[in-house]
Amino acid sequence: MLRSCYPVLCTPDVAASASFYRAHFGFEPTFEADWYVSLRHPDSGDELALLDTAHPSMPAGYGEAARGMLVNLELDDVDAVAARLEAAGVPVVQALRSEPFGQRHVIVRDPGGALVDVITEIPPSPEFAEAFGIDA
């Protein structure tokens, strides 16, 4: 029986990455070491962990920063969060925009290089409504 599922992002600077998720998104630590931090969000209970790319528990040849994936964080007001992130100097890699598939979002980069897609759901366009089972 599956008891839990959460991403573990490899990062060369665990402390900086943990600070990013705590400061900008309200995650709280459930375990902290210099090589690994486990985070949980107090509102949703969602979890995220960070692992030092150089830690010996990483298989040889795989100690790289997270790449090729997005961490999706669905929030109530992406416009306000996007403005706050930009004002804080968080690197924006895709500007705030609305998508026809039902998302308004901005994509930022965390200190370890992982992409964070900050999302607020919006009504999808008629061409995507059917995929969601919504009458257009």
Rank of each mutant, 00 (worst) to 15 (best):
P126W: 07
A66Y: 06
Q94L: 13
R97F: 07
P124I: 13
Q94P: 05
Y62P: 00
P56V: 12
A49V: 12
V90K: 04
G102W: 09
A114K: 01
L51Y: 04
R109A: 09
A33Y: 01
R40I: 08
Y36L: 14
L85P: 14
A65C: 09
A18H: 10
D135A: 13
E32A: 15
V106Y: 01
F128N: 11
I122H: 02
S38C: 05
D13Q: 01
E121Y: 12
S44D: 10
P7M: 01
L85V: 14
A15H: 06
R67Y: 08
P56E: 09
P12F: 00
R84H: 10
S98D: 15
L115C: 12
D52A: 15
S57K: 04
G61S: 02
L50N: 03
H105A: 08
D43I: 14
A15N: 02
A136C: 07
I107F: 01
D77Q: 06
A66R: 03
D34S: 13
L50P: 01
P29A: 14
A65V: 07
A23I: 01
S38F: 04
E127V: 09
P124K: 03
L115A: 08
V116L: 13
H24Y: 03
F132D: 07
R84M: 11
I107A: 00
A82L: 02
A60K: 11
D34R: 08
V92T: 12
V8C: 04
I122Q: 06
L75Q: 01
A129R: 13
V71R: 00
V71M: 07
A15T: 10
D77S: 10
Q94S: 01
S57F: 11
F20L: 02
L9H: 04
F128T: 12
D52V: 01
S19I: 01
A88G: 10
A136E: 12
T53G: 07
A18W: 13
E130D: 14
A87E: 15
D110Q: 04
D13C: 01
D117R: 14
G63N: 07
E74A: 08
A33C: 09
I134M: 04
D79K: 10
L70G: 02
T53R: 14
A80R: 10
G45I: 04
L96D: 07
E74Q: 05
S38D: 09
V37K: 05
E121K: 00
H41N: 03
R104E: 05
P124H: 07
E47I: 00
D43N: 10
N72C: 13
E121T: 10
S4V: 11
C5N: 03
Y6G: 02
P123W: 06
L9G: 06
A129M: 13
L75F: 06
T11S: 15
V37W: 04
F128I: 15
A82V: 11
D46I: 06
E130P: 03
Y62T: 15
S17Q: 05
A18S: 13
E99M: 10
P29Y: 12
E127G: 00
F101S: 00
V106L: 06
R104P: 05
T11C: 08
D43L: 12
E127K: 02
I122D: 14
P7Q: 02
V108N: 03
D110M: 03
I122F: 02
D46G: 08
V90Q: 03
H55N: 14
E127W: 00
A65W: 04
